[in-house]
Nucleic acid binder design. Sequence first.
DNA 1: AGTAGATGGTTGAGCCTTCAACTAATACGA
DNA 2: TCGTATTAGTTGAAGGCTCAACCATCTACT
Lengths: 159, 159
Amino acid sequence: MGDVRWLSAEEQRVWRNYMAATRMVESCLERQLQRDSGMPTTYYEIMVSLSEAPDRTLRMSELADRSRFSRSRLSHAVARMEQEGWVRRTECPSDKRGAFAVLTEKGFAALADAAPGHVEQVRSLLFDALSDDQIELLGEICATVRKAGPDPYGPGLGV
Amino acid sequence: MGDVRWLSAEEQRVWRNYMAATRMVESCLERQLQRDSGMPTTYYEIMVSLSEAPDRTLRMSELADRSRFSRSRLSHAVARMEQEGWVRRTECPSDKRGAFAVLTEKGFAALADAAPGHVEQVRSLLFDALSDDQIELLGEICATVRKAGPDPYGPGLGV
DNA sequence: AGTAGATGGTTGAGCCTTCAACTAATACGA
DNA sequence: TCGTATTAGTTGAAGGCTCAACCATCTACT
């Protein structure tokens, strides 16, 4: 716990590029989706998770874990999405504390509508810019970072 | 504008790893800094920019451009930081619309105090997990993505 | 059965960000 | 010089996120 392991000039350079690039990607995606489909990427991801689940239904906690959202965040989000008619909440018979989130038809339609523009954006921001080799390497790097990180890393699971 | 270029299975895998990894890094950094130093990474970055400027002073717009923040966001942030005593605003003699943001001694101290923990976090989340080769490749990849992206990409410059 | 502790989920306050509207000052062209 | 268009910066409302506190229910142990 003694001296600080400051970043070398080279590491600084990498780090600033990393920040700039990831922020750019994130913020462009957010803007595009908000502008064209009126939803934050958060909601998009929640709906993707639901759409992939059997009966388009998941327990709130399961949904929170998969998207790595805090329970609180998910709860607020689902409340909002319920207002939009994209999601419905059902109670769980086997555990009366529990709740299911169900993607509605309207929600599925909104998702289907938003998807093409979103995917196009992902492609043009990230994949189009990189060579096949770079894409593969990036995949490995991200997998490594992800595995090395704390798990669960945030308020997602457990907290 | 015809058919959608959906992601291949492989691209999906890369994309989900990318999202998971970058989100993890971001959220861990945010939490650490907020917990240990009571500031969001946003403010940290603003103070870094100011600390590197001559006289620890920058025009608001210059500061916004460097950090790629919208003018509005910066304005709100600086207002908040002024309350904390970390930053002071001065008016610009040559352009009476303009304003300077100045990092105070207290702000500099807060930054110096926050830096070690933040850097340690950056290191342990990203650099420690990767080989030297991977770090270099990541740097290149990010530089490429950054250059390929729209510029200015967001509400940062111009909007 | 009775109780202590864990788990599922919600809520509200506070903060940050975005968007759009706005003021004030400068630059530019006729 | 007048008028218009830009540019610098701020503001307020609306929405999303975090944190901590909070019920309700379930589990496990005695």
